[in-house]
Design a protein around this nucleic acid. Structure first.
Lengths: 180, 180
DNA sequence: GTGTACATGTAACGGGTTACATGATTGC
DNA sequence: GCAATCATGTAACCCGTTACATGTACAC
């Protein structure tokens, strides 16, 4: 597997949790990896197929009563090996996020200051929503999933999101003060 | 111009600063927009062509002595209008950065704790480098470019980068303590 | 002569989203 | 009858990077 395609590893990694189908992988991503890795169905299903082709996972169709049929994927020993290898490889470079608000701010010299302040306030509200969502997930993990062996690591990644979001909120507040 | 392609607007916006050629736009991006918007030559030159096609910019070839010829681009009145329109449009959604370290941490249950600590330390060092780079740029703007009308806005976007980076460094330190 | 700054461009490729297509079952 | 949840998949498209191709001028 090309060392660079991290999304494939993300899917492989999710097969080590209780996720077994494309559908449940998607759900997991939307609730728990959402703040640092998004994946759509358009990637998940073809990727699962590729993982099987490479021998990193196996499939078994499951007939269900009361629900549509599904395909259960299981990580193979070989899959576990390459996953571990990838995890151990050092991270080459820091992520750069594309930030539309900053891009607009960068060119805001000619804009009305009030419009810029409105942008900042709207952004601050979105950040606050995100912050509250994170706190909710944290609470949920702490009460319902704390038995899970993965839980401590989930909390660590969540903590990152919480801290970054708080710092961004602070920046919004400071910038609004500076501009008004 | 499709409302969604922010990169086109970034290039259009840079034409309102003293940048006039594809080459100088690239330089500006690499030094000043780098922490929230990256653009390669593979996008810049075709985009400039498109902006001219749409009437948002005009070109004039310049023959230079002692240097290769270049093409000077100028934003048109129409270009200024669509740029202002875009800046005023509210930001629809918060950015989600793909973070390889978090992805690896998420699946680190089975990994040796020491390997995880090493990852964190390496990441912390990269963050510190970035932090120092930002401080350098800040100093440079404050001493050399403070006359520029755009300077206050550049400092605001830089301040965002500084705060976020500091928060990430704090998270590294805390996480290392938690794990050891 | 070699490296670096200046300067412009394209083609191939990869990664990812969106829209579309299909269909079962349950609860309102 | 309709919406929601469960479930799988593909094709078209967009965005962006990388590698390649080309060339001038200056300083060491």
């Amino acid at each position: 597997m090309a060392k660079e395609n991290h999304t494939q590893y993300a899917i492989l990694g999710l097969l080590t949790t209780e996720c077994r189908t494309g559908y449940s992988i998607k759900q997991m991503i939307d609730t728990s990896l959402n703040h640092f890795w998004k994946i759509s169905y358009g990637q998940i299903y073809p990727s699962l197929k590729l993982l099987v082709d490479k021998g990193y996972a196996s499939v078994e169709p499951q007939v269900q009563e009361g629900k549509p049929d599904k395909k259960e994927y299981t990580i193979t020993a070989e899959g576990q090996r390459v996953l571990r290898e990838w995890i151990q490889e050092p991270v080459q470079q820091l992520p750069v996020e594309k930030n539309e608000l900053l891009l607009k701010l960068f060119f805001s010299r000619n804009q009305d200051v009030q419009d810029t302040l409105d942008h900042l306030e709207a952004y601050r509200e979105k950040l606050t929503d995100r912050y509250n969502t994170y706190l909710g997930i944290q609470e949920m993990i702490n009460t319902q999933l704390i038995e899970q062996a993965d839980a401590p690591f989930w909390l660590i990644t969540l903590d990152y999101g919480i801290r970054i979001t708080l710092a961004a909120i602070d920046w919004c507040d400071e910038t609004k003060k500076t501009l008004s």
